[in-house]
Design a protein around this nucleic acid. Structure first.
Lengths: 112, 112
DNA sequence: TAGCTAGATAGCTACCACGCTATGTGGCGC
DNA sequence: GCGCCACATAGCGTGGTAGCTATCTAGCTA
């Protein structure tokens, strides 16, 4: 050892890149689309206002047509990217769009 | 055989998804950034107006700091997504941004 | 407190993207 | 016409992501 330390020639992973990766999935785009109008896309739910808290996890899993863990991971990616907001209530989790964050991202992409 | 044919539960790959995948890479974001102002980011080139035709492939390869085939693939992804336009001239290839396409994509993302 | 159910985690497979080196190919220029 | 140079293609290794089943955990309800 040890020769020179390799310079970081690398493009550093930006937050923008992360957000784009979160968006670059048909499943996740679909979820965001549904969440635009939860009342139209999901069955009526008893505990948790669709508009205030969002759609129930179970409905999303069901409508996505994938297994529960797979849907869960997609939702986690969206939450981690702060594109959607999760709310726990009683025994369920509800998801809604983070409109502020989505708008901010749209602005950043417009400046690409 | 043969049971029922599985229904397409799948979210179909959209063009939007494809564009987002093309964009969701630090290297490619970097290239688009550089191409905003080729004169500022690349050495002066003799054959091919940086503003009209874009930056010479060789400069991009060099500045990216990856091998020629790797850079070539990144550029191909951008061209295939129509985010940049390639021009062949003499023996070289020049790349420039497709501003119309980029703006259109930004609009679509704003409506996500 | 006990049981049940929503959701997360673990662990697997398959696939795709990114990096590389080696090699083709096609068009300029001498 | 020949050689050379710019760029593409082939092929390989690796890491990350999406899908699955099985299982764990936490918190609601009775």
């Amino acid at each position: 050892m040890s020769a020179a330390i390799a310079p970081i020639e690398y493009a550093l992973p930006s937050e923008l890149e992360g957000s784009l990766k979160a968006l670059a999935s048909a499943r996740r785009l679909q979820i965001l689309e549904w969440l635009k109008d939860p009342i139209a896309h999901f069955p009526p739910q008893e505990h948790g206002d669709p508009l205030e808290h969002g759609a129930c996890n179970l409905f999303i899993v069901d409508k996505l047509g994938v297994s529960q863990p797979t849907a869960s991971r997609h939702l986690k990616v969206l939450v981690d990217a702060r594109l959607v907001i999760a709310t726990r209530r009683k025994g369920w989790t509800y998801y809604r769009r983070n409109e502020a964050r989505i708008a901010e991202l749209a602005r950043r992409i417009a400046a690409i």
